[in-house]
């Protein structure tokens, strides 16, 4: 019974957090929702006897990765909230819904539809012991990692090194002039894109004005206010860059 309760609470936390990540307008909020999801996941790991992973989940994911996200968000400007009312790519939202629903449904069918959804045999060497304690789990994981998967483990070490070097190279501020870029092309496209956004915004504004004329609902008023605010920030950042 406790198990069910724990699962239910965790599932709720995870799903709410996940929806929060994709729904929050401000990326800072998204990151905070992500932490919520990761914590819920850590609890689920514990209930699945994966104690080491639960700890790693908290330390590495919540502690390091999300902090890195937040750091970059702060670096680039906290106020870059996104206008979720506008979708420049026609049909993207619809396709996204279809993809989400189809993925979920198909995975449900695959995972639960048949008895042998899980195939394969447990390894002889890596079998989970009967007595699962914290120490045992870590020890088992370590033993497996440093015997059967030692080459993969070393490869991940190299991968991380390369990633660090790559990040330094990419993010390093170059001395002197910037590398040449197809500036004209970029500018033209940016302008075209901005024009598309503006047109769409104007259209929405017109629609909103119409509906506002029909019945002065408060939600549309809010949307208008958001829109104005969004375009205002865009102009500001443009000026700063120039």
């Amino acid at each position: 019974m406790v198990e069910i309760a724990v699962f239910a609470v965790c599932a709720a936390i995870i799903l709410v957090g996940a929806v929060g990540v994709i729904a929050a307008r401000n990326p800072v909020h998204s990151a905070l929702f992500l932490i919520q999801t990761l914590f819920g996941m850590a609890v689920v790991f514990i209930s699945l006897e994966a104690h080491f992973l639960a700890a790693v989940q908290v330390v590495v994911y919540a502690g390091a990765i999300v902090i890195l996200f937040l750091f970059v968000i702060m670096l680039l400007g906290v106020d870059q909230s996104e206008n979720l009312n506008i979708e420049p790519i026609v049909g993207q939202r619809f396709i996204a819904g279809v993809v989400g629903v189809a993925t979920f449904a198909l995975m449900l069918v695959t995972l639960t539809g048949s008895e042998d959804a899980i195939t394969g045999q447990p390894q002889a060497t890596g079998a989970l012991g009967d007595e699962l304690t914290d120490a045992n789990n870590v020890r088992q994981l370590a033993e497996t990692l440093f015997t059967d998967y030692v080459f993969a483990f070393e490869a991940t070490a190299i991968l991380l090194t390369i990633a660090v070097v790559g990040a330094v190279v990419l993010a390093k501020r170059t001395q002197g002039e910037m590398l040449p870029t197809p500036r004209n092309t970029l500018e033209i496209r940016e302008e075209a894109y901005q024009a598309r956004i503006d047109a769409r915004a104007a259209q929405l504004e017109a629609n909103a004005a119409e509906s506002a004329a029909a019945d002065s609902a408060s939600s549309t008023g809010e949307a208008d206010a958001d829109l104005v605010e969004a375009s205002g920030t865009g102009d500001e950042t443009d000026g700063g860059d120039a």
Partner: peptide, 19 residues
């Protein structure tokens, strides 16, 4: 599966690369 679907939807509809 639910978490994966939500993530996929988010990836498709959000424009901020961080998100």
């Amino acid at each position: 599966a639910a978490l994966f679907s939500i993530g996929a939807i988010g990836l498709l509809i959000r424009r901020n690369p961080l998100v």
